[in-house]
Every structure is written in C-alpha cells, then in structure tokens.
C-alpha cells in the first residue's frame, strides 16, 4: 500500500475532515463495507458440476505420471495391461502429467513386469526419450522438470495431486463405483503370458461419456478432499493442471474446480 502524506492539504480538505469527525461523534460509521451480491453465487459456485462429454481414459504409472486420452487398452483379469495398447495410448494422449501427479492410491501397487520405457520412451525416469532423437542417455536430463507452482500451498510430494492441495486429507480405494467411472487394474500381476506383451506397471481408469462430476461431492465438511475412483483421479489431475497452467481453458471442468478452490480460499 502506498500511504500518501496528508499533511499538506488545503483548508477545504481540513474542513471536510472536521465535518466527518462531527458525523463520527454523532455515531456515523467511518468505514463502509460493500456487500456485493456474492454469497449466493459463491455457494452456487460450490455447487457447480461439469460434464465430461466423451469417454475419457486415464493411465497412471508407478511414479504417478499420468496420461489422459480416449484410446482403449486391453486388460487381463489379473489387471495387467497390453503393452502395445499402453504404448499407443501414451503416444496419442491429449494430456500428459509429470511424475508425482497421480496420488499414491491411484498408482499400481508394484511393477513386477518391469517398465519398458527404454522401449517405449518418453517417460521421465528410465530409458531414453523416444521423442528426443538426439537422446543423451541421461534419464533425468531428458525429463522436463515439473513446472513451477504459483500457489504457495502446493506440496510437491506426499499430498500431491489433490485439487488445490489444501485440504490434505484424501482417501479412497481408487475404485469407487458410486462416484462413476471405474478403476481398472491392480498392481501385481503374473508373467504367465510371457515377455513384455503385458505389464502390471500401470493402472487404467475409465470415465464414460457424459459423466457428471460434482467436485463438492469429494469435499468434506472441513474443506478437505476425499478423492476416489476415476472421477476422483480426474479431479486430482485437474488440480495439477490448475496449479501449473491456471484457469487457462484447455482442461474440461477447470473453471468449476477453480470456483471451489476460490471458495475455500476465502473461508
């Protein structure tokens, strides 16, 4: 705040202040608070929901890296995913989120079949970058760091992923049919089908078309998030998107989520 000196003022100015002091002595308030018609809209904002118009699928790896796209992936009963489908899904993904984006409960429990990133490329952590022809074999060097966060309350690890990251207590099984969508896959698979044709290093989540997500459904009374199911994962990633890119269109539902985060901010 720039505080201007008021000492050098004209006589009229001083007289106006005297007049206001007399009003003050008569009990007239000296501060007026504007009551914008905001309460109802804020609550309506909290009630907002958004529709995911077409089928949306999310692939998550053991490091919490996530890909969103509309491709399908074959899955065995054991939860293992067909590697060629995984490759194709990753290559055609509409959104890619860096490691640590998907919260722990959405990641595969373990990765016993090995991650074939040196084969598939394009993952931070292992192998060369498929998309980087000049590959330097420096795994981390070829991996773009997470963008800076503008929001000071963002915690990089542990609580990562929940929308806005301020509630900090979410829970969930990753497979909550009540909230729509379904979580597929499980961490440990067998290798009976041999080779790298199938992998247990990913979990695959599907959200069917025209699914309505009401973020407030995942919010507890004390303002913390309880994210579960495919829809919960979607919200977690939307929160990541918001942290990185802001409300810059591009990600369905982001405005709705922002309204809720703003609401929480003002509480």
């Amino acid at each position: 705040m720039v505080v201007a000196k008021l000492q050098e003022k004209d006589k009229g100015f001083l007289e106006r202040r005297r007049h206001l002091l007399r009003l003050g002595a008569a009990g007239v308030p000296m501060v007026l608070t504007l009551k914008a018609s905001a309460t109802e809209p804020v609550h309506s904002a909290l009630d907002c929901a958004f529709v995911i118009p077409s089928a949306t699928n999310i692939l998550v790896d053991v490091d919490g890296k996530a890909w969103i796209g509309d491709g399908d992936i074959q899955e065995k009963n054991s939860g293992e995913l067909k590697t060629s489908d995984v490759t194709s899904f990753k290559q055609n993904a509409e959104f890619v989120f860096p490691s640590g984006s998907a919260p722990d409960q959405f990641r595969p429990d373990e990765c016993s079949t090995g991650d074939d990133d040196d084969y598939w490329g394009n993952d931070c952590g292992w192998g060369n970058d498929y998309d980087e022809p000049t590959g330097d074999n420096d795994d981390q060097g070829s991996c773009q760091a997470d963008p800076d966060r503008n929001t000071p309350w963002f915690e990089e690890e542990g609580e990562d992923g929940e929308p806005g990251n301020r509630g900090n207590s979410y829970s969930g099984s990753g497979n909550d049919y009540q909230h729509g969508g379904k979580g597929k896959g499980k961490g440990k698979g067998d290798d009976d089908d041999g080779g790298s044709a199938w992998t247990d290093c990913y979990k695959f989540y599907q959200i069917s078309s025209n699914t309505t997500i009401s973020p407030a459904d995942y919010l507890s009374g004390n303002g913390s998030w309880n994210l579960s199911g495919a829809n919960g994962l979607y919200l977690a990633l939307a929160g990541k998107y918001l942290d990185t890119y802001g409300n810059d269109g591009g990600f369905p539902g982001i405005s709705c989520l922002l309204s809720i985060l703003n609401y929480l901010e003002y509480q």
Binding site: L34, K35, A36, S37, A38, P41, V42, A45, N262, Y266
Partner: peptide, 15 residues
Amino acid sequence: AMQLIASSPNYQVIG
C-alpha cells in the same frame, strides 16, 4: 463504483 459492485454476481469470487 458502489452501485456497480453491488450489482456484480461474481466480484467477490474474482477478488
């Protein structure tokens, strides 16, 4: 300004 703010449905949300 006062009247405009009072007419706004989202002034407080935008902040």
